[in-house]
């Protein structure tokens, strides 16, 4: 922080010198210099578009390949199809019509929604509450609880899968030491193989990051706002609902986007929690499985990837509107 402030001060200094040279420029030979400077200022836009192109090329390659036959994909590069043609919609038709006995891809997309929507909304709600408490409600042990919770971000999710599956499949039981008596700590709700088990798992795994991200945002909200509300007699719940949530919309939207993407594109957690319950598989597993045991029909994955990515892209376009400048500034004034 302090070094950044110094930098800021240092950057301020050449200000007058710069404007001085601009004045000199008006006198003659430095007109070229000004043109160059203007060009330089426009460079960032070019850099951005260059980056956009570099970032889109890999995806674009697959997109074009998804309209080509399997043997074409293997034999020649996608750029040759501009001259040779031979486009086909067969891959998409195959992907969309696959697995007709088990409800097909449409069923799988519905399953994906049934997992991703609760797995996005519920962690956000829970984490926003906790983040607010960690930031603005003083209670004993708050700091340690917060550090402990957020440290769990470091836990590799894979290790938690098996214990959770055991809990969902048979409940959690504990044999009292030295006796034959078993206490049921978590009853067997037969959750294994259901979408509920999947989104419950996602919720638990998402919380450390959600609390971390939202706490970072909520803790920087101006305290005067809350003071004013408290003087007016508002309790924590009212403050949270009336002030914190509306002001945190960009952070909530940002987290919602990522959480939706991660849960929508998740493969491992869903497969572990669902096991042989194929009728509940989300689209990721269905599409990956289309490739077959030895990757025989791997060419379908190209079309499958775009079918899969369509929904998250829509979500991103929709939620991007919430990243609005000046949301905070305006409310502080009013």
């Amino acid at each position: 922080m302090s070094s950044a402030a110094e930098t800021a001060a240092a950057e301020k200094a050449p200000g007058p010198a710069g404007s001085g040279s601009a004045q000199r420029g008006r006198r003659g030979p430095d007109r070229v210099g000004r043109a160059v400077y203007r060009f330089l200022r426009s460079i960032p836009a070019w850099v951005l578009w260059l980056m956009v192109i570099v970032w889109s090329v890999p995806t674009g390659s697959l997109f074009l390949n998804s309209f080509r036959h399997r043997d074409d994909q293997r034999a020649s590069g996608w750029w040759t199809s501009f001259t040779e043609g031979n486009w086909t919609l067969e891959n998409y038709a195959d992907v969309l019509s696959s697995g007709e006995q088990t409800g097909g891809l449409w069923q799988a997309l519905l399953n994906s929604f049934a997992i991703a929507i609760p797995a996005t909304i519920i962690p956000i709600a829970i984490a926003a509450l906790a983040a607010y408490a960690f930031a603005w409600i003083p209670f004993r042990g708050r700091e340690w609880l917060f550090i402990g919770t957020v440290s769990l971000l470091a836990l590799p999710n894979q290790v938690a899968l098996l214990p959770l599956l055991q809990m969902f499949a048979g409940g959690a039981h504990w044999t009292l030491p030295g006796t034959e008596i078993v206490v049921t700590l978590f009853p067997d709700f037969s959750l294994a193989g259901t979408a509920t088990a999947v989104w419950l798992t996602h919720t638990a795994f998402a919380l450390p990051f959600a609390i971390f991200l939202l706490h970072n945002y909520i803790s920087t909200l101006p305290g005067e706002l809350f003071e004013a509300a408290r003087i007016d007699g508002a309790d924590h719940f009212t403050i949270f609902w009336r002030i914190v949530v509306p002001l945190s919309v960009p952070a909530l939207a940002a987290f919602a986007i990522f959480q939706f993407l991660w849960t929508w594109n998740d493969y491992l957690i869903a497969l572990t929690m669902l096991g042989a319950a194929g009728e509940n598989y989300p689209a990721t597993i269905k599409i990956a499985s289309m490739a077959g045991e030895f990757g025989l029909r791997e060419h379908l994955l190209s079309a499958g990837a775009f079918v899969q990515a369509g929904v998250p892209m829509l979500v991103f376009f929709f939620l991007q509107r919430f990243f609005v400048r000046g949301l905070l500034a305006g409310s502080v004034k009013s």
Binding site: L165, A169, G170, G275, A276
Partner: peptide, 13 residues
């Protein structure tokens, strides 16, 4: 790979 987890997790087919 998955059958290991399913068997150990008590959810085998």
């Amino acid at each position: 790979d998955q059958i290991n987890a399913q068997a150990a997790g008590g959810n085998p087919p």
